[in-house]
Amino acid sequence: MLLRNVFLKSLRDLRWPTFWTGLGLGILGFYFMWLFPTIGKMMDLQSILDAFPPALRALIGGQLIDLGSPAGFLNMELFPLMLPLILGGFAIGVASGATAGEEARGTLDVLLAEPLERWAVLTEKTVAIVLATIIVAAFLLVGVWGGAAFTGTDLALDKVVAGLVVGTLLALAFGGITLAIAAFTGSRATAIGITGALLVATYFINALAPMVESLNQIRGISPFFYYLGHDPLRNGLDLGDAAVLAVVAVVGFAVSLVGFERRDLAA
């Protein structure tokens, strides 16, 4: 059944990375919610955090930290760094494999000798990647929900979903950039390297922007600005932010189509 077409075959290829990354994130989500009642009651910790120098505070979650509420707790522990790193890393990894991985292994020649358009192959693979990324995020949701239910924590699940939606879009934005670089260069390492560096650099631009005026001026170029900028864990989904990230992902995909369509494939 999973060998019917390129889309299903791609899902099949992604099933274990998706499962293990999802399981890891899910356990992490459960773990944090399980910790929350203990840590949330340690008001001392909040006062220690409040006494942190602003630079350090900014790095671990900025103004969003409020250990007393589950949303604030997740804003510090899971969402600012852990989720982009793991979910974004996942999207970058699988996106780099879509064409460049097959090209390096030599299976792309076989695939494209079949009656398939190049754009169709790339599109089917991309849809599989998007789906896999959503599935990983869903694992996390289940973990967080499970942890909250287990400890009887009152958590606004719709707000967590809002955070996960922008989180997934952030990951897909980086995935789209990876796809574009991989399609143009055919090099998996180049695609991972450049996008990985971009992820780290734009993270710091956004995190340090409140302290550094020059960074504050260019904060808008960082995808992270559109991720937690409007605090989705408290305020729900900001459609504008979501749209910006979605546009980056779609543009990346569109660019990859152009690059893949016109290039000589490596033998």
Partner: peptide, 8 residues
Amino acid sequence: RLLLDLIR
């Protein structure tokens, strides 16, 4: 590979 449109 030219015949198969793998390269142009």
